[in-house]
Design a protein around this nucleic acid. Structure first.
Lengths: 196, 196
DNA sequence: TCGAAAATGGACTGTCAAGTCCAAAAGCGC
DNA sequence: GCGCTTTTGGACTTGACAGTCCATTTTCGA
């Protein structure tokens, strides 16, 4: 593994971001290496220099890149679920994020194309889900400590359910283009926390 | 469109089911027309005779085929959500169905590969979702009529939320292999109906 | 400034799979 | 059984795209 010079690192990053952008716009299936090359003004040898594993390695890198954005896009609300208005603000932020994103979910797209069973893809997704669920659970615990949520509720299980609500809502949005299901599911999930 | 003889219809069906089976086992990406031909003991000309649109038309047909199974696999419980034990039985059936299916969701796989925006794919999925949600909503209404659910609850919105719970739970199962999220989300969704 | 290591350009190859074509066989209404 | 339509076999064409290779240029530490 050769050490990267400043220029090399920049090129690698350019390829990665270009690939991510192209995938976000056109989907994985319609993204060839040549597309990425053209868009980023790089050559084949560069791509294979920085991603020796070729297409597969590049896709995995894109998956990691996109996974990193998911939680960041929910900041700072996700880390501050300390009051009911804060939960509502987070809910709005999530809905807004996915409404903006539109019908394409790059992460889902990439990982399902890579095969969900692939070790690499699986690692990226499960780690994201795990952290996501952990942050929600932390919010639940905080509300429990504040006496706002029944202490008998299992925070992890509740967070798991809420996470599924989001995933399902987004998945449905992929097909319908509407965020109504996402909103309904999130509202129901949060309401369930309050009235357990 | 030539009229199909008995033999022709059988061949067409054989190709369709063979393609669906191969996709369920190996995923869309790893399914070529030649694979399908080999498995179904047919020739190229036959495939293009019955599916003039080629691969794309075949995939769409597979999507329709798989979509048709989804609700059928939830019978008879889905059509009979008339008591809390019945809801529980349905919940168990859904969990069981997806546990059996394992990590591959043929429908999701096919449609996301076809592109969720494609008119054909979109029609198949939205119609399935619509009918699914309708059946759940009918169950909610029935329980409302029986005085078991708060009549102030919007049945369609509740059904939308519950549907999102399922979709999200299944999506997470694709990556993790576990049905814990699906179970947690369904339980929460049904509990929300009771305690609204 | 010099030389090794890294970065780059781009032509070239090989593979694989979708889709075409035509001639031969089988089915079906009469 | 006759003739028209449907069905079938399978070779062939075409195109696309991942991945390879090597010569050349640039970077960067000593």
């Amino acid at each position: 593994m050769p050490t990267l010079t400043r220029k090399g690192a920049a090129t690698r990053q350019r390829i990665l971001e270009g690939a991510a952008a192209h995938i976000r716009e056109h989907g994985v299936v319609a993204t060839t290496l040549d597309d990425v090359l053209a868009r980023t003004a790089t050559s084949k040898s560069q791509l294979f220099h920085y991603f020796p594993g070729g297409r597969e390695e590049l896709l995995l890198a894109v998956a990691r890149f996109e996974a990193g954005r998911v939680l960041e896009d929910q900041r700072p609300q996700l880390g501050d679920l300390t009051s009911w208005p804060a939960w509502q603000a987070w809910r709005d932020r999530v809905v807004d994020r996915y409404r903006r994103q539109g019908r394409l979910c790059p992460l889902n797209s990439v990982t399902s194309h890579l095969g969900n069973g692939t070790p690499g893809a699986q690692a990226v997704v499960t780690e994201l889900l795990h952290r996501w669920q952990g942050e929600i659970a932390a919010g639940v615990r905080h509300m429990q400590a504040a006496g706002e949520i029944d202490p008998g509720l299992d925070p992890d299980r509740a967070a798991a359910a809420l996470l599924a609500c989001i995933q399902g809502g987004v998945l449905i949005q992929m097909s319908t283009g509407e965020t109504t299901h996402l909103e309904a599911a999130l509202d129901m999930g949060i309401a369930a926390l309050r009235h357990h």
